[in-house]
Amino acid sequence: MADFEPRIVGFLCNWCTYAGADLAGTSRMQYPPNMRPIRVMCSSSVDSVYILRALLEGADGVFIGGCHPGDCHYVSGNYKARRRMVLFNSIMRSVGLDQDRVWLRWISAAEGRKFANTVTEMTTAIQEKGPSEFRDKWDV
């Protein structure tokens, strides 16, 4: 799968991870172009439906970036996102889907390097997994 280029949908919190991505860009840090960023107001605003829709439509991975616990612009959004991720992972395991295609990470506005490293790391991990099983499944 050397030539497999994963398609990763990224949901980035406006206040931290999106700004972190911006910093990575303005600092000219190099990282793979496989993630398509979508700016959201908070990691807790990423309802499971958006993650699932991306996966079922064939995305190879979904990335969600939020503020570090304690740093949420809305005080507690990321704590709630964390609980929802626990639920999401549980459901994925219960039905036998791969929870490791969905990553939640805390990346602050100052962590451009962490953002670039995380995207690199995730792209490599998904490359190793190979394409999503839903990529060619039209009958979902």
Binding site: G66, N78, Y79, R82, M85, R105
Partner: peptide
């Protein structure tokens, strides 16, 4: 899902 604890699920994220 309507609540949380600061000190929990530390490995998530």
């Amino acid at each position: 899902l309507t609540t949380f604890r600061e000190d929990e699920f530390k490995t998530i994220g």
